Amino acid sequence: ALDDEAWQAELDLNLMSAVRLDRLLIPHMIAQGSGVVIHTSSIQRRLPLPESTTGYAAAKAALSVYSKALSKELGPKGIRVNAVAPGWIYTDAAEALVERIATSAGIDETAARQRILDALGGIPIGRPAQPEEVAELIAFLASDRAAAIHGVEYTIDGGTVPCA
């Protein structure tokens, strides 16, 4: 469903933007002997939705692998690297998606939200996360309280992705 231009746009936005930013910031972290890198991946790397989000999911999967590889390289230099993989987060963009689905399907917003929940296979806590909840996780991972956490990806999705 995606042409080469769409694939490249997803890779540039969801992978290469992190790579390019890291290239700028990490040398300074290496020089000071410490730092924290936190990438924002997505549960779609493990639970891709169909159709036009395939490029996004693939780019986020690549970002997760890149994060792990970077953690191996930078850990010995005093730089922690982690990733956060949000599920459905109720942002302004998510609300706009709900409105688009409702309008295009001729249903109300409650039914549109349910369609999204159904596409995800449900969210055990019964709701999408709020942006502030994701921000709290990222703030913790960036803090000294997480000084021994390195090379991992945390999923924050209300239980959407089944655990092994």
Score class of each variant (00 low, 15 high):
Ser41Pro: 06
Asp3Thr: 06
Asn14Arg: 01
Pro48Leu: 13
Leu2Ile: 08
Leu117Arg: 04
Phe140Lys: 08
His150Arg: 11
Pro50Thr: 15
Trp7Val: 06
Gln32Tyr: 06
Ser34Cys: 13
Ala18Ser: 15
Ala142Gln: 02
Ile79His: 04
Thr110Leu: 13
Leu141Ala: 02
Ala93Gly: 11
His28Ala: 14
Gln114Trp: 04
Ala93Ser: 14
Ala139Gly: 01
Asp108Met: 08
Tyr56Ala: 04
Leu24Met: 13
Pro128Thr: 03
Gly78Asn: 09
Leu13Asn: 12
Asn82Met: 09
Asp4Val: 06
Leu63Ala: 00
Glu95Ala: 14
Thr54Cys: 11
Pro50Cys: 07
Ile123Ser: 01
Arg46Gln: 14
Asp118Lys: 12
Leu13Glu: 12
Ala96Asp: 15
Arg45Ala: 10
Thr91Asp: 00
Met29Lys: 03
Val65Arg: 06
Arg23Trp: 06
Arg113Ala: 03
Thr155Gly: 02
Ala102Glu: 02
Glu133Trp: 04
Gly78Arg: 08
Ala94Phe: 02
Thr54Tyr: 11
Leu117Val: 11
Ser17Tyr: 08
Arg145Met: 14
Asn82Ile: 08
Ser42Pro: 03
Ala61Leu: 08
Ser34Asn: 08
Thr160Glu: 01
Ala57Tyr: 03
Leu97Ile: 06
Asn82Gln: 08
Ala59Val: 03
Ile43Gln: 02
Ser42Phe: 06
Leu117Gly: 07
Leu120Arg: 01
His150Leu: 07
Gly87Trp: 04
Ala164Leu: 14
Glu73Ala: 13
Ala146Cys: 10
Leu11Ala: 09
Ala112Gly: 07
Ala142Arg: 01
Arg80Val: 13
Ile26Glu: 04
Pro48Ser: 08
Lys72Ala: 13
Ala112Glu: 10
Glu95Trp: 08
Val36Met: 05
Arg113Pro: 06
Asp92Glu: 15
Ile107Asp: 02
Pro48Lys: 11
Leu47His: 03
Leu117Cys: 08
His28Glu: 07
Ala6Gln: 05
Gly151Gln: 07
Ala57Asn: 05
Lys68Gly: 04
Ala105Asp: 14
Lys72Arg: 13
Glu133Cys: 00
Arg80Met: 10
Met29Asn: 11
Tyr66Ser: 05
Trp88Arg: 00
Asp118Gly: 09
Asp12Val: 11
Ala62Ile: 11
Asp22Phe: 09
Ile38Asn: 03
Ile107Leu: 09
Ser41His: 05
Asp92Leu: 12
Leu2Arg: 01
Arg113Glu: 07
Ala31Asp: 07
Asp108Gln: 10
Ala1Gly: 15
Asp22Gln: 14
Val84Thr: 02
Met16Val: 08
Cys163Phe: 12
Ser71Tyr: 07
Ser17Asp: 10
Leu47Asp: 10
Gly122Asp: 13
Gly55Arg: 02
Gly126His: 12
Gln32Leu: 10
Val134Pro: 01
Ile101Gly: 00
